[in-house]
């Protein structure tokens, strides 16, 4: 029987990945109102760029990371301007369908450009796992958890304590009125796409060294991240973070004590139960009251 504490620690590591990916998804949704189903595929492009800069081109890892993150900003912003802005007045279903199309296009193009053979991405930290009492935690997992909490706190501060955040919340509540109040709504929406892809891209960069990088790497992760966003209430940044860690821990416990084949179905069953009791998700009410 696997150790409960070790499963929880391991779950927090992968939960951080789900949380970061969910955070990117929610950031975009909060300002543009679009559920970006292409978020996993877009995020995967970031470590693929990182690999290209680091491996074939031989740039230092820090430079490769920075340039890959700039590429993430560009990918998110350009995608919004080229595709989503064109149909910004279309019904939500059309916009969602477009993101589904983008998912297939980006994954296909990434496959053509980079191929599907696994690629090695440099780890952020090296070394043996750290001993925490009777348990071990991988250095990569520590970085993931720390980055997730830091980014979560930074975006919470941005949304709740700055004029930019106030503007973004105004757009989320009523974009027409926000426009009349002098807020440049389109710029904010483009920026939210850029930052949303950046955050999800960070998650992809951090997880790529351990799961082997390929254009479909984030497919499975995206499903759990989507579940995390739903669990957290979809409009809530804190909900995305807590939802991500919760999904990570619960899915690890399911795999450890029952079967990995049941991970996805039991995680979604749990979400159905929680949404039955709290249709707004874990943090939905708090998010609404803040708006």
């Amino acid at each position: 029987m696997a150790e409960f504490g070790q499963l929880v620690l391991g779950g927090l590591g992968f939960g951080g990945i789900y949380a970061l990916a969910a955070l990117g998804l929610v950031l975009i949704f909060k300002t543009s109102g679009v559920v970006n189903f292409a978020f996993g595929a877009m995020a995967t492009v970031v470590p693929l760029v990182l690999w290209t800069l680091f491996s074939p081109l031989g740039l230092p890892v820090v430079v490769a990371w920075l340039l890959a993150l700039i590429a993430a900003l560009l990918l998110g912003g350009v995608t919004q301007v080229l595709f989503l802005r064109r149909i910004e007045d279309a019904p939500p279903l059309i916009q969602i369908a477009l993101t589904l199309g983008l998912l297939l296009v980006i994954e296909g193009l990434a496959g053509v450009l980079w191929g599907f053979s696994p690629k090695e991405v440099p780890r952020v930290v090296h070394g043996s796992s750290v001993v925490l009492g009777p348990y071990l935690i991988a250095p990569n997992d520590i970085v993931i958890i720390a980055v997730t909490l830091l980014l979560g706190a930074a975006f919470y501060f941005l949304f709740e304590r700055t004029r930019i955040g106030l503007a973004m919340r105004a757009i989320a509540q009523d974009s027409d009125t926000a426009e009349l109040m002098g807020i440049r709504v389109r710029r904010f929406i483009t920026a939210s796409w850029a930052v949303g892809v950046l955050v999800t891209g960070v998650a992809a960069n951090l997880v790529a060294p351990t799961v082997s990088l390929s254009p479909t790497m984030m497919d499975n992760i995206a499903v759990f991240a989507f579940a995390a966003a739903v669990l957290g209430g979809f409009g809530s940044l804190a909900g995305a973070i807590v939802g991500g860690f919760a999904i990570g821990v619960v899915s690890d416990l399911i795999a450890g004590y029952l079967s990995s084949d049941l991970q996805l179905s039991l995680v979604f069953l749990l979400i159905v139960v929680i949404l039955y009791a709290r249709p707004q998700g874990l943090f939905g009410v708090a998010a609404q009251s803040r708006q």
Partner: peptide, 20 residues
Amino acid sequence: AISYDPTQVNFGPQAEQFKS
């Protein structure tokens, strides 16, 4: 003997099960 799903990416629980 532990099974896995081919789309799975997180193998932490399996590693821990074998270790335990």
